[in-house]
Design a protein around this nucleic acid. Structure first.
Ligand SMILES: [Zn+2]
Ligand SMILES: [Zn+2]
Ligand SMILES: [Zn+2]
Ligand SMILES: [Zn+2]
Ligand SMILES: [Zn+2]
Ligand SMILES: [Zn+2]
Length: 306
DNA sequence: GAGTTTGAAACT
DNA sequence: CAGTTTCAAACTC
């Protein structure tokens, strides 16, 4: 069983857009992926990183975990273990925008992540019950901040629009405020896949700068995100042998998206080669957003026709 | 397996 | 920022 867990099945994104689950997760595609024209491979590391940065520039949180657990650091409760009977205070940072699924199918990212909807969600007719009353626990309904967001449309028989737990802070995008990064409880079905936290050596932990004072920033400028989560994403392979790179056999680093004119098929356009440097022995992938490079030029990808 | 539905991501 | 298009997964048959 279990053949390799199949991953993505992209056909037109070259696995270089967030449409690709692998790319979005910050990992390279694997053999079990059924993608076509995949550039999300180590051989195209340069391109992958370049595109990643472009997307990241557009949305700094693009590669941030979509779901975060608000409970962490929430209360001084050191209970730490919440056992498995917690209502899961985790929530989707950007929320969903479901219109027809009522957040009861996997079309809904909240549902798929098994987390309750929150005020960040703009779903209609939400019936998602995750995050609330996980079980018959003696837990009183904590006041979930049910958000009145939803229009009062006709409620077909009482609705239980439960949304977000009280921890929700109203914010333009609280997605930025809580980045605790901790989630993805997904157990990787596949054997090895993402990393698991390198524990190993001690030293190193990059505390990174932290803004001591308040970081409350209502709206306004997006100077820098409040905190950058720690999205470490790595990937399988641990190639003990050597780093890829340098070798550059005959691969053509190409860059795909150069904005190919809107002509059908993205035209091959010219290539722009630039240079980028980065990387340091990465286990596998994109480091994340630890540093920001000014710009990178880049390469091009071969685009294929339709 | 093909075909439809769905909502995020991308684009305008 | 909203409207539209594109995309790949979830779902249905
Ligand atoms: Zn893909
Ligand atoms: Zn893949
Ligand atoms: Zn791929
Ligand atoms: Zn939803
Ligand atoms: Zn939701
Ligand atoms: Zn919902």
């Amino acid at each position: 069983m279990s053949e390799g867990c199949k991953r993505c099945n992209c056909r037109r994104s070259k696995c270089l857009k967030l449409y690709c689950e692998c790319f979005a997760a910050g990992v390279y595609c694997v053999d079990s992926c059924a993608c076509v024209n995949c550039y999300n491979k180590p051989e195209f590391e340069d391109t992958v990183l370049d595109i990643r940065q472009q997307i990241e520039a557009r949305n700094p949180l693009a590669f941030t975990p979509k779901v975060v657990d608000n409970a962490i650091g929430s209360s001084p409760n050191f209970t730490e273990e919440q056992d498995l009977t917690t209502p899961s205070s985790a929530r989707h940072k950007r929320g969903c925008n479901c219109k027809k699924s009522k957040c009861l199918k996997r079309y809904c990212e909240c549902f798929q992540a098994k987390v309750g909807c929150s005020s960040a969600c703009r779903c209609e007719g939400c019936k998602n019950t995750f995050g609330v009353t996980p079980e018959p626990v003696y837990n009183r309904a904590k006041r979930w901040a049910s958000h009145p967001a939803e229009k009062l449309d006709n409620v077909k028989g009482a609705i239980a629009c439960i949304k977000a737990p009280g921890i929700i802070h109203y914010s333009p995008t609280w997605e930025g405020i809580s980045d605790i990064s901790k989630l993805t409880p997904l157990s990787h079905p596949c054997s090895r896949a993402a990393f698991s936290s390198a524990s190993s050596s001690s030293s190193a932990k990059i505390p990174q700068a932290q803004l001591p004072s308040s970081q409350l920033q209502p709206s306004g400028a997006h100077y820098d995100i409040p905190y950058d989560d720690t999205p470490e994403i790595l990937e399988e392979t641990s190639n003990p042998t050597k780093v890829v790179k340098a070798s550059s056999p005959n691969q053509k680093r190409v860059s795909p998206p150069q904005s190919q004119s809107r002509l059908r098929e993205r035209s091959p356009t010219g290539l722009r080669s630039g240079r980028k440097f980065n990387l340091q022995a990465m286990p596998s992938f994109p480091p994340l957003t630890p540093h920001r490079n000014s710009k990178e030029g880049t390469n091009e990808i071969e685009n294929d026709d339709k």
